[in-house]
Amino acid sequence: MELIRELLEVLGSTLWDVAPIAAVLFGFQFLVIRRRIPHFTRFLAGFIFVILGLTFFLVGLDKALFPVGRAMAEQLTDPVFVHGVDAAAMQLAHHWTDYYWVYLFALAIGISAVLVEPAVLAVAIKANEVSGGAINITGLRFAIAIGVGVGITLGSFRIITGGDLQYFIIGAYLVVVIQTFFTPRQMIPIAYDSGGVSTSTVTVPLVAALGLGLASSIPGRSPLIDGFGLIAFAVLFPIISVMTYAQLARLWERWQGRHPSHD
């Protein structure tokens, strides 16, 4: 019963969320293109599915993805878990290296989520075509996955040490800017886009919850100031790893050209 009430409540707000899309599509179709919408019933049915789906997803998010992300952060940073002794050892100073399970978890989540993401595969196939086969599809997927994994890990490190988010991001930007000049030109748009596509609807809330959970359970961190930023890392680092991969692929090609194999 509780669940049904919750679903109905969210359904109400979801109607408002998708209303702008309906307005835009109808408005432009009738006022500018001036044609009837083809297959109107199917369009309408699709819209109803979208509304229902969004409702279920948002309720499920609150019940599953957010609590899971937070619970993982809390469990892995629990003083008893970290030090393995009784809670009286709270006096022990926490060193950032004590939280190695957090880093491993962040790395694993980032890599595994990217490897199954269809949008990433689509980008990899595109990159393979654009580069004339120099970019290997599987290789690029791993490059993006490692980028996201390392990004989230570094982001967790920042939350744990309480570093300034902007310096990390500035540093990453500088690397991106410098690499842009050394990356094959046709790979640049693909590299930039790879950051955006690698974060799916499922991973974003989970990663955000992980960050907020870390910031609330590590002493001295504020969730509002330190808790956000993990997603920014997850978007930036694949750009770097894809560009690195493109440069390595070109170097490899040149090296192959200079040293043709004799078999």
Binding site: I21, L25, G46, F49, V50, G53, L54, F56, F57, K63
Partner: peptide
Amino acid sequence: LVVIGLTLFVYGLEMGL
């Protein structure tokens, strides 16, 4: 709920939107 939601959502998007 997340699985049902995502399924309906993506299905609806591809069908209608």
